[in-house]
């Protein structure tokens, strides 16, 4: 079978078109992700999507919709926590990454959600793309291109230097000028940090306890 024949199959053609569109336009967004050190955010969004899918399946809601909704909520929460606590986005994203993956497994376990279905939101085959998926991919690519074309001077100002961009009138860091940190945001962050710390300690303790029990057996063996 040659390439022309392969493209006569709609799934292959759709997959190919989606790859070409994504390859041409998505790196534009990738540049900002790398320049603004948002790599950890990517993993957090994956885990938030997993949590969304688990919640969606537990509540019999479309997992894709629930995943997207959770991602939007996670972005808002991370941005708020990072700004109000004065931490870097990377730290805040890491905490949310741990929190969302923990919650996702808790939901999967407690609600009896098939984990394979929940994880299905993160993986898939390019050949399974529907016509709607292709249209959405193209629309997203156009949106990225329009965003970059319309706001390139402002975006390049932020990439150049965030403080300079702010001083030049770009709405880069609005809440920094707030007189006091938001007490609710700060409290939320403290609770979250302690929850992650305590859960990690409990996990470590349980492992140590189990190791202590099995140590004599290992010695005997």
């Amino acid at each position: 079978m040659n390439i022309a024949q392969a493209f006569s199959y709609p799934p292959i053609l759709r997959g190919f078109l989606a790859l070409v569109i994504a390859g041409c336009f998505f790196p534009m967004a990738g540049v900002f992700i790398l320049r603004l050190n948002l790599v950890t955010l990517r993993f957090t969004l994956m885990h938030a999507a997993l949590l969304g899918a688990a919640v969606g399946l537990a509540l019999h809601v479309d997992p894709l919709f629930a995943g997207l909704a959770l991602d939007v909520l996670a972005i808002i929460a991370i941005a708020r926590v990072a700004r109000e606590s004065g931490l870097t986005l990377g730290y805040a994203a890491t905490f949310f990454m741990v929190l969302t993956i923990g919650l996702a497994f808790a939901v999967i376990y407690k609600a009896g959600v098939p984990s394979k279905d929940a994880f299905g939101i993160l993986w898939g085959s390019v050949y399974s793309l529907s016509r709607t998926d292709l249209v959405v991919t193209a629309a997203y690519a156009v949106a990225i291109a329009l965003f970059v074309a319309a706001l390139f001077p402002r975006v390049s100002a932020v990439l150049f230097h965030r403080e300079i961009a702010f001083a030049s009138g770009v709405n880069e860091a609005a809440p920094r000028c707030a007189k006091r940190p938001d007490p609710v945001g700060a409290l939320f962050f403290r609770i979250m940090a302690r929850a992650v710390f305590v859960s990690n300690c409990c996990f470590a303790l349980s492992r140590t306890r189990r190791l202590c029990y099995s140590l004599p057996l290992i010695c005997l063996a």
């Binding site: 001077p153 402002r154 390049s156 100002a157 990439l159 150049f160 230097h161 300079i164 030049s168 009138g169």
Partner: peptide, 19 residues
């Protein structure tokens, strides 16, 4: 400011007028 991407002197000055 040290930058590691191509930006010309004129583009840097343009930042002041971007908004």
């Amino acid at each position: 400011i040290s930058v590691d991407f191509p930006i010309s002197g004129r583009e840097v000055v343009e930042i002041g007028a971007c908004t």
